[in-house]
Computed example of a mutant assay.
Amino acid sequence: MALLEVRGLCAGYGAVPALDDVSFHVERGEIVALLGGNGAGKTTVARSVSGLHRASSGTVLFDGRDITRCGPQRIVQSGLSHVSDGRRVFPSLTVEENLDLGAYLDGRRKNVVAERREGVYRTFPRLAERRTQHAGSLSGGEQQMLVIGRGLMSEPSLLVLDEPSAGLAPTSIAALGESIAAIRAGGTAVVLIEQHLQVALQLADRLVVLQEGHVILGGRTAEVAADPRIGQMYFGDRNPLKT
């Protein structure tokens, strides 16, 4: 049984459709990347799966349970954590205070919160060095580490990351990729929403490609990367990934 199974998902904003019959699945301990240009529907998929946007039809199963109509808090409790785009930290709070907000459902169990925080610091050692620093003074790469770390504080079995590499310098993107690989190695599955094809190719086990709210490609990373349609989408007529 897949950890996450999305079946025939349709969603929109008012009369404007955003997703049409989107289906894919994520196995336990797997990284699945959702690719596509602006307006392809990637963020709407993430918001619909995590309960932040109500799908008009379709089904979302998580760990065998139907969560299609569940609210965000219930979905977090079930083990699915969504890290939205934009590096939304609380700038006047310290790194440690930002992390602790991610464990709000277990906030009264101080020992549990402390153990999870130390786990985040092992994944992101730089955050441990900055634990008393205000989040607003961190670099862009450090803020991205912080929001992902905050998502890990609920101890999810699936982490949905929306555009984690957006706006980061190449060195920060490389460090982020290593951290995401370490998160998967620790047993947490990842849905990685990306515009950067190279990031997805390096990390993902499988790719799902969206265009105008439809799934146009899906499969093992090497198979999708070799498809001529991926080359046309990202590189024009020639696909350098095949050379």
Rank of each mutant, 00 (worst) to 15 (best):
N38E: 03
A200L: 10
L35Q: 06
N38V: 07
G236T: 00
G102D: 06
A128S: 14
G236R: 04
L61N: 02
S48D: 03
L93G: 01
F62K: 00
I67W: 00
I148F: 04
L105S: 00
V208L: 10
T221G: 08
V160S: 04
V49F: 08
R88A: 13
V191T: 07
T123S: 10
L168A: 11
V95A: 01
F24D: 00
L80G: 07
L3T: 12
M233R: 00
T188E: 11
L152A: 01
K110A: 15
V95L: 05
I183W: 10
S78A: 15
L210S: 02
A226V: 05
D63V: 10
G141N: 05
V215L: 06
A40Y: 00
I180E: 04
M145V: 06
E155M: 12
A2L: 08
Q73M: 13
K42Q: 02
M1L: 08
Y13E: 03
E178N: 13
M153E: 01
V26T: 00
A2F: 09
I67Y: 01
T132Y: 13
A182N: 12
V45K: 07
V199E: 11
I173Y: 03
Q232E: 15
G140I: 12
P91C: 14
L168V: 11
E223H: 13
G79W: 07
D205V: 09
R130S: 11
L168N: 10
L52A: 08
V16H: 07
E5P: 08
K42R: 08
R47Y: 08
L146M: 09
G37T: 13
V160R: 01
L152Q: 02
K242E: 15
G102F: 05
Q144A: 00
R47F: 05
R54N: 11
V215G: 04
M1C: 06
D66W: 02
A181I: 01
T59P: 02
R126F: 03
C10I: 00
R69V: 08
R150W: 01
S50F: 06
G8D: 15
K242H: 13
V6A: 04
Y13H: 07
I183Y: 10
A166L: 15
Q198W: 08
T123K: 11
H214C: 13
L93N: 06
T68M: 08
L101C: 14
E118G: 09
S157M: 10
G51M: 02
R206H: 13
R184Y: 05
H196L: 15
H134F: 13
V83P: 09
A200F: 09
P240M: 04
L152P: 01
Q144H: 02
E223M: 10
L201G: 01
G37F: 11
I183K: 10
F124I: 10
F235H: 04
S157R: 15
S84N: 09
Q133F: 07
G167K: 14
G14H: 08
A174G: 06
Y104F: 15
Q73R: 14
V45T: 12
F24G: 02
V26L: 11
V76N: 00
G41A: 03
G141P: 05
L61Q: 03
Q77I: 06
T123Q: 12
M233K: 00
I75K: 02
G79I: 06
H53W: 13
F62L: 05
V32L: 04
K242F: 05
G39H: 05
R47E: 15
S139Q: 07
V83W: 03
